[in-house]
Design a protein around this nucleic acid. Structure first.
Lengths: 219, 219
DNA sequence: CTAACCATTAATGTATACAAAGAACCGTGA
DNA sequence: TCACGGTTCTTTGTATACATTAATGGTTAG
């Protein structure tokens, strides 16, 4: 593995999982020493993170980890909505129905997973990741896939901020199942509409959860 | 201006305008010497171009300028459609109607521009760029704007491949006017639909133009 | 006491030297 | 003549030294 890749992956993981919270100053020499690479590959990593929108230059202070406000969540969904609707639409047109039928089958049993504690919930998340992968594999457009990948970076960060409760997960599983079944039945319009509905609910939940947390903080 | 920015801008321009055609090998030392910077900032520039999707690694041969096939054009539009529909929708919701009314006014006179030769056509293109800018300014979502910017990089490249004739430009102006008027009237759905129509026509024209050229080549 | 300017310093930005990995080419053998 | 192996050379990847810029703190003048 190249040193620049190592630096990028390390910083990316730490930003996404919150180890490096928003506002953290990333000084080159400091981070290079910490990660164990020289400044050259570290700079390359920082450049990529800047393109990803995960760090930004702060006048004279170097680079800092970007903030994620409530407005950012809304704005992110204004990109997520059209991208994932299109992705679902194309998957319904081109995807292998058998692949999605299998995922649908597993989704129908996801309630049991969700109710079976931490391990089950993790398995449920992995099922969702498999669905995302299957959709991306069905899309031939490299451009759309790239845009989706960039999007998911930011989504992963937000997911940490607004942790979903079990009720929301169960509801989300039902919504997702509608999408997957539409893909199996090669119904692009339904797949897109179901995605629209799912994301609207998902956004609403995110905002409500954040809201609650903010209130908790104030109290 | 930083040396890395200079290198990035230079290479970007040359790739977009065709000076560096697809398949061109970009060796670091060679390009660094040509542009007049050292390898370090040049590598930074190449890294960004790679993230943009304008260059790609070729096993052992370093980086080459990516190809643009007919399939790529179709795939690019599969990203463009949802992004620009969403952009038009948001602009219709949030844009300043006066700004777009002014653009609409100028669009109504664009036939005269298009018929007045090279200079007029250039002015027409600039009008379109102003429209794009106005739409981006109306969108609050930084994520969507970033995705649009990345998209427009590739579109600029394709525009060179399929040069539009005067008839197409006139038709495009009419289609664009429908979009802009929908924005002025704060009609998001119409703005999105009109964008859908416009891009569909635009794609069709691109493919036909490419097709013709290919036939010419064979003949 | 405050404000402005200079010096110091710590950071980024750049250049270059070095290392490592891979490809091409030449030579030798069958 | 072809195949295989080794060597050389070109390339990318990394480290480090140097340049430059901007911020900070102290000192001095008003």
């Amino acid at each position: 593995m190249r040193a620049s890749d190592k630096a990028y992956q390390t910083l990316l993981d730490e930003i996404v999982d919150g180890t490096l919270p928003p506002g953290t100053v990333l000084a080159e020499v400091e981070q290079a020493a910490r990660i164990g690479v020289s400044r050259t590959p570290l700079r390359e990593a920082l450049g990529h993170l800047r393109k990803d929108g995960l760090v930004e230059p702060l006048a004279g202070r170097g680079l800092i980890v970007t903030a994620v406000s409530i407005d950012d969540i809304v704005e992110l969904y204004e990109l997520r909505q059209p991208l994932e609707q299109q992705a679902a639409r194309l998957a319904a047109q081109r995807g292998n129905p058998q692949v999605f039928a299998q995922i649908a089958k597993e989704l129908r049993g996801s309630d049991a997973l969700i109710d079976s504690g931490e391990v089950g919930i993790k398995a449920y998340y992995q099922l969702n990741e498999r669905l995302d992968r299957a959709i991306e594999d069905s899309i031939s457009s490299a451009y759309l896939v790239a845009a989706l990948k960039a999007l998911h970076l930011h989504l992963a960060r937000i997911r940490r901020l607004s942790r979903q409760n079990v009720n929301r997960l169960r509801a989300a599983a039902v919504e997702t199942l509608v999408i997957v079944e539409a893909i199996v039945n090669r119904d692009p319009d339904l797949a897109a509409s179901a995605t629209h509905v799912h994301l609207q609910q998902s956004l609403r939940n995110s905002l409500e959860t954040i809201q609650t947390r903010t209130i908790d903080k104030v109290a």
